[in-house]
Every structure is written in structure tokens, then in C-alpha cells.
Simulated scan of single mutants.
Amino acid sequence: MLSNEIILLIAFFIAVGILLYNPSKYYGIPAALIFIGVGLFLGNDSASSFAFHNPTQTDLISQLALVVIIFVGGLHTNIKDIKRVFAEGLLLSNIGVFVTTFSLGFFVSLVTPLSIIEGLLLGAIVSSTDAAAVFGVLESKNMKMKYNSDKVLEFESATNDPMALILTLIFVSIIKSAGVEVVYLDYLTFFVQQVFVGCGLSFFLYLIIKYILEKIHFVEEGLIPIFLLCALIVFLKVNDFLGGNALIGAYILGVMLNTVDYHYKDNTLHFFNSISWLAQSIMFLLLGLQINPVELLEIIPLAILPALFLFLIARPLGVFTSYLPMRQPFKKQIFISWSGLKGATPIVFALIPLLEDLQNAELIFYIVSFIVFLSLLIHPFSMEWVAKKTKVLL
């Protein structure tokens, strides 16, 4: 359990992060960079009585926060926008993640002490883009683009976490069972179970909630968001019991609920916006507190090549491969290749090897953390420039 001291620390740092983020939003600085930075540089001092290092609690809270954030993102997603970019987004969030994972994984095994399977694990962890960071940059810069490029980025970033998480869990399982014959059919079954249970359960719950919202008139506007929040918690517990993927299920549930008209809908969305910000703030802060600044600096010589390979080769390779079945302007593909912002999600996924006590788990964690920080420092400030150079900006 979190101590009173830690709760006070988190509340104080969230307040500091809000005060720093409010003016910085104008410059397109992602919330992840602000809040993780606050936790990293103000709270994570081994000599401080406020130091907090608890990967187990951080992983539990962060996984829950991710589900809430993605659910709220779905609530704000217009299904008409999804239909226009569905094929592109689906290919990027699956084929793109797969190609990025394997290309980066093999490269990492060549330039670091990590084995091929450990490199693939690292590749899977950093293969997805961050929805909160992408939404934040596009909104703060008010970037409207040709060829639905902005909608593609938003849909991809909201849907590629499940594939990255599934690959991460598969590679963790393979490493843990080293020396035992690998039954790849079991991993294929696991993938299918994750996707179909998550999607099926979310659709079933949507039908129930839709019926209730249409048939029952809630006399108090504050009851509806509480009801939906409780429904989301029920979804998480049942989904966990059945072995589905909570991330993809939460997003689909949010998107489908956005199609339902009910009383006090605007107020409900405002409520979930606040919940999403609280979830982001706590998650970013706790993740920052898990990172030791000294170790992060020491990892730079080892992590710089994997980071550059990801940004300049692995991510573009994943994007170009995804677009092979489709005819889209090359300049659009270049822009999307560059705009693969990383955020808190890879750091959350990097906690999984730590919790499983895998060999080299800490090395993977700090390489991932460096890649995330470098992405947050480079991509948000260069996206608009790249959009102008590729002429996809309206």
C-alpha cells in the first residue's frame, strides 16, 4: 500500500506538473515529458526520504491508468473518422508493430549485450506509439493535414498498444521457458484469445450499457459517469478472468459508446477527461520515480544506436511495409514514419521483465527509458517542421 508520505508526494508533484504543463502546452511539450520529468528530477533521489521505487505497484497502477486513458480516447473518437482510416490504422498498428519489433530486435542483438530474443523483447516494448503524446501535439499545434494523416496517427496510436503488449508477453514467456521446446501454436492461440475475448466482451458490454442508457432516465447527471466507470471496472475484471486484452477492449468499448446518445453526455465526457488526466498524471509520475537519473545517463552510450535505428530505420520500415497493399502518397508515409512518438506505454511494458525477474531486465528497462525520453525531446518539436517539408500540412 502507498504510505501517507508517498500520497502527499504524489499530490504535490501532480500540482507541480500541472503548473509546469499549463504554459508549456503552447509549445507542444507532451504531458508525459513534464510529469515523468517532475518525478525523475524532483522525487527519485536515493538520499531522499520521499524516494519511491516499487515496480509492482507502479505496474498495477500504470496498467489500470492505460486502460482508462485508452477508454477515454475511444469516447472522444468519431466512428466516421475511423472508417476513413480504418484499413491504414489497422495495418500500421499490427503489421507496422510486428515489422518494427523484429527489425529493431535483430539490430539490438548486434550492438548490445542482449541476445536475439531479448532484443526482440525490447523491440516489442518500444514498437507502439503513444496516444496521449500524439493527441497532445496535434491539438497544441492545431495541425490539420492532407490525406487524413492526423486521423491515421490518432487511430494508430490508440490501437497499436495491444499488439505491442501481446508480443511483449510472448517474448517474456519464451525467455522464461528457456531450454524448453517452444510450442508456437500456443502463442498463436494466446494472441487469438487476447484479441477475440477483448473485442467480444467489449461489444457484449456495449449492448448492455446502450440498452440501459436508452431505457433508464438518470435523475442526477453525476450518476451516469459513475455508472460507466463502474462498468469499465467490471469489464476489466471479467476480461482478466477470461484472458482477453484489456487495452483493445477498452478502446472499442469507448468508441462504440460514443455512438450512443444519452442524457448529460457532454458532462459525462468532461468527467472522463478529468479522470484521464488524473490517470496520466499518476502514471507518468510513478514511472518517473522508478528511473534513477544516474543509471539513465550511464546507459546513453549503449542506447543511442538502438534509438536512432528505431527512429530512422525500424519505424519507417514498419510504416512502408504496412502501406505496401495500399496506394498512399510517399510524402505522407514519410511524415507518419517520423511521427512515431513514444510515451509512457513502453516504460510500463518495460516493467514486465523486471517483475518477472528476467536476466538483463534492468538493462532493457533503462534502454527503453532513454528511447522514450529522446523521442519526447525530438518528435514533438519536429513534427510540424516535417509536416511542412513533406507538404502534408493544410
Rank of each mutant, 00 (worst) to 15 (best):
G179R: 11
Y211C: 10
P225G: 04
F204K: 03
G200E: 12
I209S: 01
A231G: 08
E139S: 13
A164T: 11
A133Q: 00
S149C: 02
L188P: 10
K210L: 09
F218G: 04
D186I: 11
C230R: 10
D186V: 10
L188S: 13
L223N: 12
I226Y: 11
K151N: 12
I170K: 03
L229W: 04
I216K: 08
V195M: 15
L236S: 08
Y184F: 15
F227W: 08
G222Q: 13
F191T: 15
L232A: 08
V152W: 06
L188T: 13
F196A: 12
F191P: 09
L185A: 11
L185M: 12
F203T: 12
K237H: 11
F191M: 14
A231K: 07
D161V: 08
V197M: 07
I233A: 12
M163S: 12
Y211E: 14
I212A: 07
I166C: 12
A132E: 05
F155E: 03
F190V: 09
I212L: 13
N160M: 13
V183W: 02
C199Q: 08
L228R: 01
N142S: 14
K141H: 14
L169A: 12
D150I: 03
V172R: 06
V183C: 03
E221P: 10
Y184Q: 07
